[in-house]
Design a protein around this nucleic acid. Structure first.
Lengths: 220, 220
DNA sequence: ATATTTAGTTGCATTTTGCCACTAAGTAGA
DNA sequence: TCTACTTAGTGGCAAAATGCAACTAAATAT
């Protein structure tokens, strides 16, 4: 007893600009909801996608040209009400990307909108985005996740500002640096960022497969 | 362009006995892998299940007779290699239940096996269980999750032992109680547990919708 | 009464954190 | 080149949180 169930993947791609956290939306090229802004998504290709993660990566690449340094399965949204075509499942992923890469290598016709001020979107995409924002905010408070919103090398002040924008409160510079030092997941690179004032040491994430997790939330 | 993709839900039901964390397995009643031990699972019923969570709840109820106080979506496992019938998706859930309820109300023909010593199981069920164990262990270290492995009212010593068995290290009694006191998510009930020695106050989780999360891991 | 066992609390040294002031290294302008 | 300014980065210390151990409390059994 099997049923005709629609299976798609959707990707919530985040980036950070001066105004705050943004999500990438594209004009839909097919029915339903043709021409409306929505999350990049598409059908699973059973012949070519080894699993849903590969499908999400492919969809992101095909629709935006981007390869994200961080792609994680978010949740599977399902039910008979979320898609007019019938009972459906969307395996949703979220991805983080540096805004300069997005602007340089991203699609020409994409829209970046602030996550806290979105229009009404098709399907349950508002719910998916809200879910992804919550996950990103929660996980950022106890992990190295915000690093992936920055270019490969960044200064500690840039990283602190990124944490502050994502988790939504100010952090103390000295406590922040002490924590980074204890956690020891960053290493200096042989460059500094020069500006009009004192140059700042650049750092990168130590090459490691997994996301670094903390043993407590960063709060102040 | 749609494909014939198999969609199922599987449920990893945990309980805690003296020997440690156990997972419930059932003899499969259908092909493939008929008569082999596997996770309780089944097809989504698009006509009756409002979403995959309802499907998981229904499958658990139908196959084991149990209603869990805690049911959470774990992950969606997918690909062409995990099921001999073809490209498939399993939306996996995990659930926690008190062992006395399981023994009294659970199915007559079920098997409880320790999570650290499982035989080879069909599909990718070993992987699903490993994933669920990891989630449970990680999340237990910063949440009230282990409470759901106990009956509705329990003593603080019982709760401490539960945390210790799940996260795998000894905790200090006074630090543990201080933390519970600060977090304030338990309330005493009007009963004590009497044994051969000093009676112990019974507590329950304060009625709240959501799982209580801590701001740091409990470690010692 | 006393020994024993488990429940539950209290005190204190140690560690971690939040806060603030300080030094360092650059630019710009007088 | 001296001074003011800005951002980078560090150091010191009071306050808070934690780990550890000893203590009291309430039951049973002999």
């Amino acid at each position: 007893m099997e049923q005709k169930i629609i299976l798609t993947v959707d990707v919530v791609l985040f980036t950070l600009v001066e105004g705050g956290l943004q999500v990438l939306l594209l004009k839909r090229t097919h029915e339903p909801y043709m021409d409306q802004l929505a999350l990049p998504g598409g059908y699973i290709h059973a012949e070519t996608d080894v699993d849903s993660r590969a499908g999400a990566r492919r969809v992101l690449k095909e629709k935006t040209g981007l390869v994200s340094p961080y792609l994680e399965q978010l949740y599977s949204f399902s039910g008979g009400a979320r898609d007019p075509r019938g009972w459906s499942v969307s395996i949703a992923y979220y991805a983080l990307v540096d805004s300069t890469v997005l602007i340089e290598q991203g699609p020409t016709a994409c829209t970046l909108l602030p996550v806290d001020d979105l229009p009404q979107l098709p399907f349950d995409h508002n719910r998916i985005i809200a879910f992804a924002v919550e996950r990103l905010r929660n996980k950022s408070a106890y992990s190295a996740l915000p690093c992936y919103l920055l270019p490969p090398a960044f200064t500690l002040t840039e990283l602190q500002k990124t944490y502050e924008m994502v988790i939504g409160n100010k952090l103390d510079k000295s406590a922040f640096r002490r924590k980074l030092n204890d956690l020891d997941f960053l290493e200096p690179v042989a460059e500094v960022r020069t500006g009009v004032h004192r140059p700042a040491q650049l750092y990168r994430i130590r090459p490691t497969r997994n996301l670094v997790l903390f043993d407590r939330l960063i709060s102040k």
